[in-house]
Design a protein around this nucleic acid. Sequence first.
DNA 1: CTGAAAGCGCTTACAG
DNA 2: CTGAAAGCGCTTACAG
Lengths: 346, 346
Amino acid sequence: MSSAGSSRVTMAEVARRCGVSPMTVSYCYNQPDRVAPDTLRRVREVAAELGYRGPDPTARSLRRRHNGAIGVVLGEHLAYAFEDPQARRFLAGVAEVCRERGIGLNLIPTTGEDEDVDRVRSASVDGYIVWTTVDSDPVLPVVTGLHKPVAVHGGPAVPGARLVGIDNRAAARELAARTFGGAHRPTVLSFPFGRDRRSRLETGPDPDHVAFPVTRARLLGVYDHCRKAGLDTCRLPVAVVARNDRDDAAAMADVLLDACDTDAVLAMSDQLAFAVLDSARRRGLHVPNDVAVSGWDDGPDARREGLTTIAQSLLDQGRACALIALGDRGPSGPAAWTASVRASTR
Amino acid sequence: MSSAGSSRVTMAEVARRCGVSPMTVSYCYNQPDRVAPDTLRRVREVAAELGYRGPDPTARSLRRRHNGAIGVVLGEHLAYAFEDPQARRFLAGVAEVCRERGIGLNLIPTTGEDEDVDRVRSASVDGYIVWTTVDSDPVLPVVTGLHKPVAVHGGPAVPGARLVGIDNRAAARELAARTFGGAHRPTVLSFPFGRDRRSRLETGPDPDHVAFPVTRARLLGVYDHCRKAGLDTCRLPVAVVARNDRDDAAAMADVLLDACDTDAVLAMSDQLAFAVLDSARRRGLHVPNDVAVSGWDDGPDARREGLTTIAQSLLDQGRACALIALGDRGPSGPAAWTASVRASTR
DNA sequence: CTGAAAGCGCTTACAG
DNA sequence: CTGAAAGCGCTTACAG
């Protein structure tokens, strides 16, 4: 029965009304066993009467010196994080651990501007997870300088943070071998190179110009294969999309199929691969005979569409990051991956 | 240049080393204009030297009496929230507002157990958003008793919280009219009725037994139409899925098409409608001639598949909830919806 | 432009 | 089983 008025009742107030000391009230909430049953009952009664809802979480955090929450730093467009299947799966893994341990999950959007640093610093969290970002992200040195555990997913690898992710270069090497075998005009449909996110067509781009380490590693893996297979990487068409979205990528998929007349596309995600499949379908092209297509991540739709793709568990990687941010050691070594080979490649 | 050792430097420490008072240091961070340029410079130097990273966010929150964060209470399986297209879109809207206002977004998973209440109470947030839940959710009275602004999405409507959402009953009424017109054996593919999430087939279930108000309202809307059209609601087959997932719903879609021999399915989401389309395709059934199908939410895939569906902006509803949780008035009246009529219905 | 004082609401060894 | 004391790290009127 909470009395209406009292908009902010403190523990001290409850104590006074009960005729006990504040710490006895505190014990009622934190170690009820230590309190005499009668006292406990009285305190609870008075608390209910006064509308006291229990200890203030912020005061408690300050006193205890921990917040019971971890922060997830997400790049540029938080809305995309919810749309992107990989990011979702990853966050689901983080969320699982949070639920198991009863701790909070604080999403920290960043925009690439100066306020990012303040936003990140002013989050009341015990540890951080940084979602894959560019090498020079100013948030990185800030977050690693906070004396709190930090996990970075994907990359970059920085001192003071644990890196979680697969060996993208090795996986790309294998996927290129599966995708480009028997092809004459192989191409790549790539994630953005940097934060500018300009959609465009490049030819044999210099990996050093790629600011996202995950994207760079995948490109390097493709180049590794090309060199081994005697393909000239300088002539390799690489279409860059503005974001990882099936519909948005349609235009660049069309460019690869039309202007480049490609017969094998390695796409850096399942979504991008689907854009190519859509485009091929519109043109009446047969997959894989006219054009081989491969993707990345092996989401549920990949199986449905018979897509060759790199399988990895973003869920597990999310879990690993959460454990690290919580101060655990987490798993050692890179995450696992396999190639799921299906009918979309020769 | 941060010195390595010092694992926790306080403002008081910086002040001492600078030979100024703590509040001068505080002003350097909060109102730098009020501080003499020389003092400001010195304080910054010493702070950098000592590895002081600025005011502790928790202490600042306690002192300022606000946290700069809102909490989003999500039901049962947080992982599902990231997989569910509606929830994602909604969260994206919430996130947009958070980014614009520079405030944190705290995800609070609940499990339906007793600890939920503590978890919700102990989040350091200034306001709450509750994602659609059951009438009797124990979190509801707790969250509305905290003297902080609360927005509930979908339902239930409770005193002390603002409700955001569309008129589900009216929308369902119209959708039923579009879907069931010309059909002889109409059926419904429904969200779970309660937290038990048992998948099953019911016949003319009593809406009062549906614990989720959103689901109940949609069922009531369907019944409204049936009565007007002279259909016997007591015989209406309603297949209930365990969760809103295309693949998971396959079994119940099959049941409707096989055991019920239905020629019109109103599904409560696009995902469930796709499960019916998948099932119809496997059987070589023509849509809409053999079976009319409709969904709900009008996501990007709905247009691609030519699905008749209820269009609403979960993004805008997410934004509205965020504004309310931040203490704004938010929009008044129910949210907007329209019927997107396409080729999947007659 | 800077400081002394009070206090945000709570918890934790430590006595008794 | 309960209390006096100290303090978590900071900010805010208020003087000067």
